[in-house]
Nucleic acid binder design. Structure first.
Length: 435
RNA sequence: GUGUCUAUGGUGUAACGGUUAACACGGGGGUUUGUGGAGCCCUCGAUUCGGGUUCGAUUCCCGAUAGACACCCCA
């Protein structure tokens, strides 16, 4: 092959910020998903899957122009037919679109849904951050009742606990609704204007574009100034206060400890009332958000519904959970580590061995094998390396006698078993290697 | 988008600017074609890409790409 014809080497690696999920990592994701799904189902959530691609305006109108997620991080494309589509940078807007599109308003409310899949943000990768990452969401649509805020938090919290998380911190705040927001923003802007000369440039900029975001600035000077900033909760309407108070009561009652964080706002502009984040301390002592969410009562209207659709939801960052040292290897239900390794010797045995494999498959006994090899020693070695506790040996002699030798790899004892009794025999073997 | 550091077989490492890029693990094959973890033999396989400096570049310089970390932002 000439140099010119050589394919671009970059085509042999994943694009920046994206990765293949293989082997143990795959099982971790699968195990976490199954656990999360199970918990969501027990709390009454139903599954839904929405497309990765949506019309671009679903996100621009929902997440909000002016947010980094939309302006800088969204993958957009134009189809051959001229449609402007975007790869979802979050799952909520698509979910709301589906709710409206399928007339779920006419179902008994609220509609509880869980949703899982990849989301995409064109951001520079770093610890726990990928351009394609996986979120598990739970959402309650169609009701403004405070118990749903609590249910969402409880569900997410439980998933994290069952995944092995300890020392979780739930930060919670209420950023109000359209009655209380304007007054709060006025007070906030007025406060920052008093400190304008001290604010770093980036936060002076934010004062013009999105003053709420100054609250979670990491700049030390801003952090100092933020200590004295007015807090949203004291601006809440009577109803907003009641709602927030109830949410906190539910949390108290469920034994979920939380911290009121008046600086907590979120990067998506559709949030109202309750917002929350679940953080965890990483090894280096910094905090990392592993789940977050909030109420989004106006989102439905923002993307085109005639009526407001009150809703609340939250999402877990699956990549971040799976990477944590406390993560339990939740064994996926569908993948069982094979207990037996099937060894066949020579052509005569191979001819019959496929029938034996079929018997095992029908008996739901997964096998590991090195089917192209003939040497017994080599195959035993491979079984050993894979840590499989029993080996089935099937050679010419066994093929003639319609039997299989079952060898216990631990104590090297073996026994000859008739083929018709094989699956029963294997099912009764002790899995003494399993952990 | 910005900054710092990094880039050698599948993996982990080595090579003062100078032969054929070394070693281990790994993969394949063999070591009497029926009894394993070892040994031995053979074999597969790499300097990310593109420029430059130089007689000569894996090594030095620039750019691209990718990775790690941080900023920004966020899950």
């Amino acid at each position: 092959m000439s140099k010119e014809n050589k394919p671009d080497v970059n085509s042999l690696q994943t694009p920046k910020g994206m990765r293949d999920i293989i082997g143990d990592d795959y099982y971790k994701f699968q195990g976490l998903f199954e656990k999360a799904q199970e918990i969501a189902v027990y709390y009454g959530f139903k599954p839904i899957e929405t497309p990765i691609l949506e019309h671009e305006h679903v996100f621009t109108s929902a997440v909000g122009v002016g947010t980094d997620i939309i302006d800088k991080e969204m993958y957009t494309l134009k189809t051959k037919g001229g449609d402007h589509l975007a790869m979802r940078p979050e799952q909520t807007a698509g979910l709301m679109r589906a709710y409206i599109e399928h007339g779920m308003q006419s179902l008994p409310q609220p509609v509880l849904l869980y949703h899982s899949g990849p989301v995409f943000r064109h951001d520079n990768p770093q610890k726990g951050r990928y351009r394609q990452f996986y979120q598990f969401d739970v959402d309650a649509l169609g009701s403004d009742c405070s118990i749903l805020d609590a249910l969402v938090i409880k569900t997410i919290y439980t998933i994290l606990q069952e995944a092995g998380a300890k020392d979780l911190v739930v930060n919670i705040n209420s950023i109000g609704d359209k009655e209380s927001r304007p007054a709060y923003l006025r007070a906030l802007v007025a406060y920052y204007k008093k400190h304008l000369k001290d604010l770093p440039a980036i936060d002076q900029e934010r004062l013009k574009t999105n003053p709420l975001r100054i609250l979670d600035s990491k700049h030390p000077v801003t952090k100092e100034i933020n200590q004295g900033a007015p807090d949203a909760v004291s601006f809440l309407s009577a109803q907003g206060k009641k709602h927030f108070k109830e949410v906190l009561q539910y949390l108290d009652d469920m034994g979920i400890t939380y911290e009121l964080d008046k600086l907590l706002v979120r990067g998506l502009s559709y949030y109202t009332h309750t917002v929350f984040e679940i953080m965890e301390k990483t090894e280096d002592g910094s905090m990392q958000t592993i789940a977050g969410g909030g109420r989004y009562d106006y989102l439905g209207k923002m993307i085109g519904s005639k009526k407001d659709i009150p809703a609340v939801g939250g999402s877990l960052g699956m990549d971040r959970i799976v990477e944590r040292p406390w993560f339990k290897n939740l064994a996926p239900r569908i993948i069982k580590k094979p207990k037996v390794f099937f060894v066949q010797l020579g052509f005569e045995a191979k001819l019959k061995s496929l029938a034996v494999l079929e018997i095992l498959r029908k008996a739901k006994i997964p096998v590991e094998q090195s089917i192209s090899k003939d040497s017994l020693g080599a195959q035993l070695g491979i079984a050993e390396k894979l840590g499989i506790p029993y080996v089935l040996i099937f050679g010419q002699k066994e093929a003639l006698e319609k039997s299989v030798i079952v060898r216990d790899m631990e104590n090297r004892s073996q026994e000859t078993v008739k083929i018709e009794e094989l699956s029963d025999y294997i099912k009764h073997l002790k899995d003494h290697h399993s952990k």
